[in-house]
Design a protein around this nucleic acid. Structure first.
Lengths: 239, 239
DNA sequence: CGAGCTGTTGAATGCGCTCAAAGCCCGTGG
DNA sequence: CCACGGGCTTTGAGCGCATTCAACAGCTCG
């Protein structure tokens, strides 16, 4: 049950999640100790569910490698993708006693998980830890707000640009993106249909903003024009 | 500068914000003391800005009466409304050093404001307070997630239903809603045009789900069918 | 009473959706 | 090794919802 927090990929994820000086920050030593002693390392294959909506929210998760997606199946037979998850994007935060969403691995992934009861207890006694989780929640709020704006105000092509740029930033790739999710996943995330996603990719390819190397590999050819495309009210090139 | 937290409308707002037993909860006495000693009561008229995006994020706000809206003007000449704010809906949480949005009063409002530096300091020493704010942030996350779903997956009429029902819940009215914002505000919130909002109201009126008494008064005639309308993939009545 | 703003309604356009077919990739089995 | 099949993606055609543009109604205020 002991986890070596100094392993490179775990350390990287922790830095992203808790701040760059996480391992040397004395204020957080109790948190690190808790993680080292009580966190578990788990792994999942592409397609596996790391957690299922409706189940008792027992754990908090910190992804350490791979990509996942957070989805919820609404009451009827429809689903919505809330976010894609990268190493360091802590999840499992919820005011409910059950998970309000599921998390699926899109590629082989590894995660740390820690019991919420342990963490709750620590938060009760250690203000630095409680404050840290407040800050993490605040970051999540910023992320959700920018997505709200995207869903409320942007066209299909703009949403796809937004997705690509966001994916690049989060994934720490260069301009060659490995995009392990299906077009349908992207569509559910962006609030458009999968055909529209496909058409948007084709359009961006025609405009030479991207190159669709294969189903799962996309190269960004002109990041600054992609950014323009995101922000402008009108799509820069109409043909 | 001393605030009487026992005043009825303040007490109500605090209960909504911090939990029903806020005034008797011993864990929160330091927070209450801080509020009583260092919070300021401020007021604003309809149309006034309570805070402006881009300004130093000096305060956290707790609305105690009235209705406000949270908006952001994007880089170009467009704006987005993130939320409507009711008594008890704390705002000003942000990881940035400047406010990332503005807050406008839609009716005469009153609020408590407290310096973030004071609160930060308290969070550093009092785990119960830090944990409380973590929980508040968590609630905000739940709210934003449900809005994401709404913007991503719902039709115009469904969004308007969602808005009305949400407004009823938050505002603590009965079925007679006082809706002090313009159609344009609602439109920016729901991610649709103002004409579409107007048409949706007309449609819901024809279906006898609501009655538009006047510009600012709407009566909900059939809450359960409104809820149906929100949830179903297809709008129940097509004509 | 007119000016200005907000809201409603109508007509026409268009973006994105649905339905459908064809292409592509890849694994499976003959 | 190749044929087949299934899943995913792409492309096309047609439709519909929501938008845009425009006119008009209703209200407030000077």
């Amino acid at each position: 049950m002991a986890v070596d927090l100094h392993k490179a990929y775990i350390h990287t994820a922790l830095k992203f999640c808790f701040g760059p000086d996480v391992l040397s920050n004395l204020e957080l030593r109790s948190l690190l100790q808790l993680l080292a002693e009580h966190a578990e390392e788990i792994a999942a294959e592409a397609g596996d569910y790391v957690m299922q909506e409706g189940i008792d929210a027992e754990y908090l998760f910190i992804p350490t490698s791979g990509v996942m997606l957070i989805e919820r199946a609404s009451s009827s037979n429809f689903r919505h993708v809330y976010a894609f998850v990268f190493p360091g994007n802590l999840f499992g935060i919820s005011s409910e006693s059950r998970y309000p969403y599921s998390v699926k691995a899109l590629a082989p992934v590894s995660l740390l998980r820690i019991k919420r009861t342990h963490l709750d207890q620590l938060m009760r006694t250690d203000p630095a830890v409680a404050r840290l989780f407040y800050e993490i929640a605040t970051r999540i709020i910023s992320f959700l707000i920018s997505n709200l704006y995207m869903l409320g105000q942007k066209t299909a092509v703009q949403r796809v640009c937004y997705f690509l740029l966001d994916f690049q930033r989060m994934g720490n790739f260069g301009n060659e993106l490995f995009v392990p999710m299906t077009r349908k996943d992207i569509a559910c995330y962006l609030g458009i249909s999968e055909e529209t996603v496909s058409r948007a990719f084709t359009r961006l390819k025609q405009l030479q903003l991207i190159d669709v190397k294969s189903q799962y590999f996309i190269e960004l050819l002109d990041v600054s024009r992609l950014e323009q495309c995101c922000q402008e009210r009108d799509i820069p090139v109409s043909n």
